[in-house]
Write a protein that binds this DNA or RNA. Structure first.
Length: 487
RNA sequence: GGCCCCAUCGUCUAGCCCGGUCCAGGACGCCGGACUCUCAUUCCGGUAACAGGGGUUCAAAUCCCCUUGGGGCUACCA
């Protein structure tokens, strides 16, 4: 099956025209898994043939983000390799040379048509029910005419001479045979009028020169693949194996887009999704480990990777499941590990606090945090007193009077205590409730708001222990003052 | 419009390639319950699908065809 030798070589080829895209990471994950499984090479190639939109900043962000999700490539613009350069903008001479070769062999031709005429032709053909494309006007030009126009410096492109009849087919490894009549295929532009190659030329030339054995890419490329196959034929090269992964989808099933979904890896990172959760989640789109196991690592994927477990229907990108997965990984960590992850990005502005306190706090939010970016919001009251409504102190089915009594009694009871452990606090306060005939929940709620300034918080007694006696009593006093104004 | 790809619970999926073991399994979500100082975690339980129609066959989610639906491409963007 294709290839020049048995070695598996795959490539991920992003265009640096925007923020790092989840779709790229998705494909990269499969590149990586397959390459590692087969003991092959994983190459990163930057496809910056669009000089209008490509930027260096984007390229750097992409590399950084890919590293973040855990992709490791063997060859690429940053690490080098024997098939470089790995940035297409640095390979323009190569493409021009191969385009010339095609021209000389009569497999390609110069096209002098203007964009206006092209648009016009397209419209006309579509109205006639024909495949919209170029009408091949310049394909008939005589050699003399072509030469005259070239000498006159007329702007032109170079197009592939697609066979007028017959059909082109390729065998997609996961989808089977795809066959298309050549009459449906457009005479693809290979060299733009600015002399730059199009994706199609650059991609085929590079995949050949870099000895790529398997081209793994998204489904949206299926319809260009026959053009590529024709290009391989024109060059007399053997095409690689093609694999088209399904397209990630928005909720409405359209191709995933930033209008309807967060698509930038940067966003996921900022939000505090773990790279391991991200990988796991992406791997589940279109591939399954089997045995109903959904939580698995990259290593598991590599070890068990086969193409026959890849689905071809487009999966909806479902944040809910990602969040759940993220929680699974978060809860599997120790408080120490979790805190380390919070500090390293950092996801918090509390890095300067005492480590013991940070750790104690982390222990209390470990089962409550879904994304690392929630750390500060979840723990803010440990570090500062937050404003709250006095009315919040009143538990359901109780009144202001109850609050005042409860807080006063609690203060008196705790004021002289030496012990401030959670166990002690719980025992004492439970005793208070029992003696007074109060509902425990009500007493705790009043205290919770007084101490944490919130109605929803970490467990009361552990929280009080972390806060310490002094701070707790002061907060209780504050609450008492607030409650005094209540009626 | 033309061409191509796809089709199991709301969502991700197992099963399909190698028809019977599937009145279709798991997970997320949702709903209910247990636990409980709130929230969360955890644990139980429930909800819910083979798009439709024809074939082939003793037997079809599984094979074939059609229809319908969804998606992609249709650029001198990738």
């Amino acid at each position: 099956m294709g290839g020049y030798c048995d070695r598996v070589r795959v490539r991920l080829a992003p265009s640096p025209t925007g923020p790092p895209h989840v779709g790229n990471a998705y494909i990269g994950l499969f590149d990586y898994a397959f390459a590692r499984r087969e003991g092959g090479d994983f190459i990163l190639r930057i496809e910056d043939t669009d000089r209008e939109r490509s930027t260096r900043e984007s390229e750097e962000a992409i590399l950084e983000a890919f590293r973040w999700v855990g992709l490791e490539w063997d060859e690429g613009p940053d690490v080098g390799g024997p098939y470089g350069p790995y940035r297409q903008s640095e390979r323009f001479d190569i493409y021009r040379q191969y385009a010339r070769q095609l021209l000389e062999a009569g497999a390609a031709y110069h096209c002098f048509c203007t964009p206006e005429r092209l648009a016009d032709v397209r419209k006309r053909r579509q109205a006639q029910g024909l495949p919209s494309g170029y009408d091949r006007l310049c394909r008939q030009l005589s050699e003399e005419e072509v030469q005259r126009k070239l000498d006159a410096g007329v702007r032109h492109t170079v197009r592939l001479k697609v066979p007028l009849d017959g059909e082109t087919r390729f065998e997609d490894l996961v989808r089977g045979a795809v066959i298309i009549r050549n009459s449906e295929i457009d005479d693809q532009v290979l060299l733009k009028s600015d002399g730059f190659p199009t994706y199609h030329l650059a991609c085929v030339v590079d995949d050949h020169l870099m000895e790529i054995s398997h081209v793994i890419r998204a489904e949206e490329w299926i319809s260009s693949t026959p053009k590529h196959v024709l290009l391989y034929e024109a060059f007399g090269w053997e095409p690689p194996v093609f694999i088209h992964m399904p397209l990630l989808r928005n909720k409405d099933r359209s191709k995933i887009s930033k209008r309807k979904n967060p698509t930038s890896l940067l966003w996921y990172r900022e939000q505090g999704f773990l790279p391991e959760a991200m990988r796991n989640f992406l791997a589940m789109k279109g591939w399954s480990l089997g045995e109903d196991r959904e939580v698995f690592g990259l290593g598991d994927m590599v070890e068990n990777f086969t193409w026959d477990r890849v689905k071809t229907s487009g999966p909806v990108f479902d944040l809910k499941k990602l969040e759940w997965l993220n929680g699974e990984y978060l809860r599997a960590m120790t408080a120490e590990e979790l805190l380390q992850r919070v500090l390293q990005e950092p996801y918090t502005r509390r890095a300067g606090e005492r480590v013991e306190k940070l750790l104690a706090v982390t222990r209390l939010i470990r089962e409550r945090i879904k994304r690392l970016c929630e750390f500060d919001e979840l723990t803010n009251f440990f570090f500062e007193r937050e404003p709250y409504e006095a009315a919040d102190l009143i538990p359901k089915k109780h009144d202001a009077d109850f609050v005042r009594r409860a807080l006063r009694e609690a203060c008196e009871l705790l004021e002289d205590s030496e012990d401030w452990s959670a166990e002690f606090l719980e025992g004492t306060l439970r005793g208070l409730a029992e003696r007074q005939g109060w509902k425990r929940g009500a007493l705790y709620m009043a205290l919770r708001v007084a101490v944490t300034c919130r109605r929803v918080s970490t467990p009361l007694f552990e929280t009080m222990e972390v806060l310490g006696k002094h701070e707790c009593l002061e907060r209780l006093q504050t609450a008492l003052h607030k409650a005094a104004a209540l009626d």
